[in-house]
């Protein structure tokens, strides 16, 4: 049992009332087990071990990845520096550019502004996860970008592609004006917005035909 040690600072700070030693001791079962125990429910007791044991299982692009994550680590940093998924870009790190956009359970979010520990039990899709891993076939959005020759410097492209992916999944009948709104959380400093909208409309067209 590595109860007290693994609890570390938090143990001293909050006393045993606020978490469950049993959960921490069993490690792997924490994320599902917390509802089973009496007393205060703490989601993801691994977080409570954060001062010592920070291993977390993340579902990224359909694969389970074990990764050591600091409590103050953002998803973008985990992806880029721990999982080597450098397709997700950091343009501003402040939710102001959208280059870091990924899908969390299919919803586009800024990975720079979410803690990795908040993603327990959720599924993350990055730009690397769009291509069919076996066939190399591009997703409809990627194919649309190829068709339309989208983007210039393309540092924003992964983010835009992820937003487009969420957009066509939500509404393949999207209008150009709706697409503009759906993509308004992504900045393109080359301002290649016209071509990006062409890609979005082409992606919707491809999505409808699938």
């Amino acid at each position: 049992m590595h109860d007290v040690e693994s609890v570390g600072v938090l143990e001293k700070k909050y006393s045993r009332r606020t978490f469950i030693k049993g959960v921490i001791a069993t490690g792997a079962t924490v994320s599902s087990a917390n509802y089973l125990f009496r007393g205060p429910n703490i989601l993801g007791a691994a977080t409570l071990q954060s001062t010592t044991e920070r291993l977390l299982t993340l579902t990224v692009n359909g694969q389970e990845r074990r990764v050591d994550v600091l409590p103050n680590e953002t998803l973008a940093m985990t992806l880029r520096y721990k999982l080597n998924l450098t397709g997700t870009k950091l343009g501003c790190d402040r939710a102001e550019c959208g280059a870091c956009t990924v899908l969390v359970d299919g919803v586009n979010q800024y990975s720079c502004s979410i803690l990795t520990h908040q993603l327990r039990g959720r599924s993350v899709t990055t730009i690397e996860g769009l291509e069919n891993a076996d066939t190399g076939e591009l997703s409809v959005v990627q194919q649309a970008v190829m068709d339309e020759g989208g983007f210039q410097c393309a540092f924003c492209a992964p983010g835009f592609v992820m937003s487009m992916t969420a957009m066509v999944a939500n509404n393949p009948n999207v209008t150009r004006e709706e697409a503009r709104v759906a993509l308004s959380g992504n900045l393109c400093r080359c301002a290649d917005y016209d071509k990006i909208l062409n890609c979005a409309m082409r992606a919707a067209e491809l999505a409808r035909s699938v």
Partner: peptide
């Protein structure tokens, strides 16, 4: 372009 939109 393909590299740009696949994260490569």
């Amino acid at each position: 372009l393909r590299a740009k939109i696949t994260g490569r």
